[in-house]
């Protein structure tokens, strides 16, 4: 017997492509853009969100029959805030430099709409295991976009990946730079992230025409 039934596997696979939280559901864009100038920061952010969403969805799913519906938003916020504090403290302890780069954006995971959106749409109405899978799946879908954006922005903007030069040395003019190639400083500034995501949406919807919006 397979580890996951087909229905359960879809919970993880759907958000990776055709139901991606960022490009289709329009959730969680805020933090997705600000920290993607470097691949490393994108990766750490993706892992943090996977942790918060997986655990958070399980907690909300366990509490779903106890929470009075009127105050559920506050309860959800408190659950997420607690998890985010854990992430923040761990980052400060083990990756201090990185936590400086991410700055307030770790805190902003609390108001990341993916998390609230999935709590509302899924964890409040489904069992523990399925909620867990849904959380992980959506966080992975979010992480994938983050990493794609981070990859292109760091590669084109600074010619490095994870801080390691891959295109040669821009000052000594080695590698690709010897042919006259220059880093595109435009990719480093924040608005470039929006344009990269716009292009990702363009590519995705050209490949899958069913996703095209009316207007």
């Amino acid at each position: 017997m397979a580890l996951l039934s087909k229905k359960d596997a879809n919970l993880i696979l759907d958000p990776l492509a055709d139901n991606n939280p960022i490009t289709i559901q329009v959730l969680g864009i805020c933090s997705a853009l600000a920290i993607t100038a470097e691949l490393k920061a994108s990766l750490v952010m993706a892992i943090s969100v996977i942790f918060v969403m997986g655990v958070g969805n399980v907690v909300i799913s366990l509490l779903r029959n106890i929470i009075p519906s009127k105050i559920r938003i506050i309860v959800q916020l408190i659950v997420v805030a607690t998890l985010v504090i854990i992430v923040d403290q761990v980052l400060k302890a083990f990756a201090y430099e990185l936590s400086k780069t991410l700055a307030v954006f770790v805190g902003l995971i609390i108001t990341n709409c993916i998390i609230m959106g999935r709590f509302e749409a899924f964890a409040l109405g489904n069992g523990l295991w399925r909620s867990f899978l849904d959380g992980i799946g959506n966080a992975l879908g979010y992480g994938v976009i983050l990493i794609i954006v981070g990859f292109f922005r760091e590669l084109l903007g600074s010619g490095t990946l994870f801080g390691i030069p891959v295109l040669g040395d821009p000052i000594a003019k080695t590698g690709l730079y010897s042919t006259g190639y220059e880093n595109n400083g435009f990719m480093i500034i924040p608005p470039a992230a929006l344009i990269v995501v716009g292009v990702i949406i363009w590519v995705q919807r050209s490949r899958n025409r069913a996703l095209i919006e009316e207007n």
Binding site: T23, V26, I189, P190, P191, A192, A193, L194, I195, V197, G198, V199, I201, W202, V203, Q204, R205, S206, R209, I212, E213, E214, N215
Partner: peptide, 28 residues
Amino acid sequence: IRYSKVPPPLRGLGITFIITGLMGIGFQ
């Protein structure tokens, strides 16, 4: 923009992202 001819895959969300990006560059 509803009256403009936007490439179908970019309609809605895609073009909004790109416009926001351009406005962001303006604000820089």
